[in-house]
Amino acid sequence: MKAETHKVARLHAMLWGIFSLGGMIAAFLLPVLIYMTAIAYPYSLWPFNGARDPSFLVTGHLLGALFIFVTIAGSLYHGIFRFQSALTEVGLLKYRRALEAVGYFIIFVGIIVLAYYLVTWYLNGTIT
């Protein structure tokens, strides 16, 4: 028998933990965000009714900015993580490393950019 060596995928375990959390966020928070931006706002429906707009979500309140960050970052992470694994299942398994690299790159850049905007707006007082 071969000597047993098992390398605990500790990093992957943590990434998976975030992925799981992201799935929870995408399931519970993303639908309402899409509703507000893609239905309520363009069609002037409740709760915006033409009075407020989605920018209020981002800058109207610190809680709103937090909501945007958590929802978008969580969904992005979850979506990309899952999609690259779905790609490995339709014949791209041998490119797994590359897919993962691209996937994490997109996640990383996306979240950094998002955080950068929100933090600068907070620091320059756009977010009240």
Binding site: T37, S55, I72, S75, G79
Partner: peptide, 25 residues
């Protein structure tokens, strides 16, 4: 498989939203 591919839309929406914010920024 449909379930897995829905994640593409979740991801794309998030990216598009970030792009929208960059237009603002």
């Amino acid at each position: 498989m449909v379930r897995e591919w829905t994640s593409l839309f979740v991801a794309l929406y998030s990216l598009i939203f970030i792009y929208g914010l960059s237009l603002w920024a």
